[in-house]
């Protein structure tokens, strides 16, 4: 194989090293400024100068979680988009795919993440969880079990939890607006 490296001028290396906006930063700027969100999703930046940490509020207008407001924290690391953003559900909610620590079971946040995906795809994926909670990959096993076994009871539990009630000795945060 031809030795190309030796043709590289040393000045190139120096030129590349000049402090530049990081690739992750640029990509996040691109992702955020091209977000195309429905009115049920809203981003909030605690510090508008920090694009790498923000919150997303989802207010489903249909489905079992209608009437609630669910906030997620987004944390974007320096390897983005090679690595997915870190996303957590802030309130403690009763949902088969969200655990009590706020971890979210969404394939594109882990195993199916690809650099070609973006923040918009993640947000749309999160909203989908509230429209179609999925009993097959549970993070809250109790909730998943209930969803599978008795849909009416599950729906009752969801409504109860959203008002800040207890389910099986577990207290859930109030997420309803009123």
């Amino acid at each position: 194989m031809l030795k190309i490296w030796s043709m590289k001028k040393n000045e190139d290396a120096a030129a590349k090293k000049k402090p530049k906006t990081s690739a992750a930063q640029i990509r996040v700027q691109k992702d955020l400024t091209e977000l195309d969100l429905p009115s049920t999703m809203q981003t909030t930046f605690a510090d508008p100068a920090d694009l790498l940490n923000f919150e997303l509020k989802i207010t489903p207008d249909e489905g079992m979680y209608k009437g609630g407001a669910f906030s997620f924290s987004f944390n974007i690391g320096p390897n983005y988009p090679h690595e997915p953003p870190k996303v957590k559900c802030i309130p403690k909610i009763y949902h088969p795919n969200v655990d009590l620590e706020g971890n979210v079971c969404l394939n594109i946040l882990r195993e199916d993440w690809k650099p070609v995906l973006n923040l918009n795809s993640v947000m749309v994926g999160l909203q989908y969880l509230f429209l179609e909670p999925n009993a097959d990959d549970p993070l809250n096993k109790e909730a998943a079990e209930e969803l599978r076994r008795n849909r009416d009871q599950f729906l009752y539990n969801v409504k109860n939890s959203m008002r800040g009630g207890n389910i099986k000795n577990e207290h859930y945060d109030r997420v309803t607006n009123q």
Binding site: P19, Q25, Q29, T33, L37, T43, F45, P48, A49, L51
Partner: peptide
């Protein structure tokens, strides 16, 4: 079309999302 601008340390003007557009 619709450029968003920043420097390595701060945002100059971002076209979206609404909060950042307003802030900049």
């Amino acid at each position: 079309k619709k450029p968003s601008l920043s420097t390595p340390t701060k945002q100059i003007y971002l076209q979206a999302p609404p909060q950042l557009e307003q802030a900049t």
